[in-house]
Design a protein around this nucleic acid. Structure first.
Lengths: 346, 346
DNA sequence: GGTAGGGATGTAAACGTTATGTCAGCGAAG
DNA sequence: CTTCGCTGACATAACGTTTACATCCCTACC
């Protein structure tokens, strides 16, 4: 009952073999496969039987050569192990699958080189469309490669000089809100750890952060702004550095899911208590914020919806929509929990 | 400087166009592209220049038709948003990429139907190999489809009647160890929440669990064994049910990463304190276990290594190894932390 | 100086499909 | 009885590569 070994031994049946066993021509088999009309019910049945018997699956490469379609969508993500992107993929999948497209995810591990490799591979494979999240907006090679794609590309949360559809998340306003609240509680020194200026989320968070301080007339201390990483390790290091510095912040904003983990770990390792010793705000991992004690205030967004919207934009293009680039902005929520409080008097 | 819209307008250049602009024949272009020798340096340079100018990328479909190779590996995972599988993908990628293979991940969302669809898509696309994690060992359709693949398949942590290479994780022994420790601390009623009998991890965990109880002469209460889910939601429900039942356990084993989240949430919602009210053991998310307070004892394994090993097995087959199926067993660790203690006297 | 040898390049078949054109057969209409 | 229209099926030309084979030209050797 078990399959033969080596599994690699079996050649796949072709349309010719199906035609032979069914006693028809390959044209007829093709028509049955593509469910086109004008084939007699009795003939169709015979062909279907032959297909089943041989376990026939049409060769996608041959098909793609004729039709110029692969029914394949590529999804470029910076980091597969990051739930944020995984959820986007999940959302996109739910929209694409019913239309017959297969979504294949590829992780670049935040390397522009790997991103270029992916884009070239996607072009070689003549994928029908792409959803991409670049790890660096200033990497010109990547952007040029996107320009060469020749198929619709949807960009996620990046500002790059390419006329593509984009799905943005709101980053500025929630940071502004949270910082406003912290200021109101009496905090004057707030540490921000987030991604670098090379990507929109990093820029917008810093902008929102500064804007809130300015509005309250609180001077900006650049030392408190750590916009240069997305990793848990670096997030931990930055947090540690902030909290052990000469004039440490009384609140930490860990704006990024991995940064969130790292920053929280740093706080734990220093033995600080939230919110008594330090107020803490995380981002993008609402579940973690809920599971730890005390529950942590989190800036959250619906990544599944991001995926759905991105897929929707792509699908419109695939259906032939020929309009100027469209932009969708999706909101973020601040989930207030007990991790923020007035700063300790000193 | 920005690309033209619609991006879909551009046709990709073919080998003929490259040949024309370089003033050579397509054969020569092909030889340059595939880096075969016997082409004059001066000609090679001209061809390379033409390729760069046109932004030529060879059509993978056409190439695949001739060579019967796609340099593509498919990775079937039950759930993309689960870090466990993401790490496996990451590990596999690091091994496969240097050999020129592209790894494409596809998430089935634990639906056997989607799994079959993926396997058929993989066969249509003539992928060179597959790494698969099935969501149900008893789904015969899926298994039949694997038998038809005709290319090497590596199976992860499942026992199915297919002669394929497999990478197993150790599940029995760590559960046995942990349960042993809980028994030693005085626990007599321990709740286990894990995956169903339809997959090896579920079976083995239950076996290890029962074995530890038997060894200690503690009677087995089937009510305490909840082997039917992998989701956070169900994990939460099962935990809630256990803890609010007539004769609740004094310790909870949440064996599965999503179950871990759900179970922990249930404990939080019930306002129980770990380890005073209840001892708690999680699995597969060492980071979460470290971030919450108190830190939680976790059964952990190196999923990146699982990916590496799986890719290694696959690579050997792709290189032509023709041996009987190989099995690799990888260990698991118990990371002891302060979430377990002696049960409260009643 | 003719020719063998070999390096560089061109030519063409094949890979497995889809789509187009063609044709046989047949019932209905003139 | 011929012609027309239609249905169902077949033959065949692409699609863009790779590769075996043919061809050409140059060099070196006797």
């Amino acid at each position: 009952m078990s399959a033969k070994m080596p599994a690699s031994g079996r050649r796949q049946p072709t349309i010719h073999e199906v035609a032979a066993t069914a006693g028809v021509s390959i044209g007829t088999v093709s028509r049955v496969a593509s469910e086109s009309p004008r084939v007699a019910p009795e003939t169709r049945a015979r062909v279907l039987a032959a297909m089943a018997e041989l376990g026939y699956q049409p060769n996608a490469a041959a098909r793609a050569m004729r039709t110029n379609q692969t029914m394949t969508i590529g999804f470029l993500i910076p980091d597969m192990t990051n739930q944020v992107f995984a959820r986007v993929a999940q959302g996109a999948e739910t929209v694409l699958a019913p239309e017959g497209y297969m979504l294949f995810a590829f992780s670049s591990n935040r390397s522009p080189t790997r991103e270029i490799e992916f884009l070239q591979a996607a072009r070689q494979r003549r994928m029908d469309g792409l959803i991409v999240t670049l790890s660096d907006e200033t990497a010109t090679g990547t952007i040029e490669e996107i320009g060469r794609m020749g198929v619709p590309v949807v960009v996620l949360d990046r500002e790059i000089p390419v006329e593509a559809d984009v799905v943005y998340s709101e980053h500025m306003q929630p940071i502004e809100t949270v910082v406003g609240q912290l200021l109101q509680l009496g905090h004057r020194r707030i540490g921000l750890i987030t991604a670098s200026h090379n990507i929109r989320p990093g820029r917008d968070r810093v902008t929102g952060f500064k804007r809130a301080l300015e509005k309250a007339g609180v001077p900006i201390d650049e030392w408190l702004i750590r916009a240069r990483t997305q990793s848990a390790e670096r997030g931990m290091a930055e947090t540690h550095d902030l909290l052990t510095g000469p004039n440490p912040p009384t609140a930490i904003l860990a704006a990024g899911s991995d940064i969130f983990y790292g920053a929280l770990k740093a706080v734990r390792l220093l033995g600080l208590s939230i919110p008594d010793d330090i107020s803490f705000v995380g981002a993008d991992d609402a579940l973690l914020g809920e599971l730890v004690y005390p529950p942590i205030t989190v800036i959250d967004r619906d990544m599944v919806e991001v995926g759905r919207q991105a897929a929707g934009l792509l699908l419109d293009r695939l259906k032939g929509l020929d309009a100027s680039p469209r932009r969708i902005m999706l909101g973020s929520d601040v989930l207030l929990r007990s991790s923020i409080a007035a700063p300790k008097q000193r």
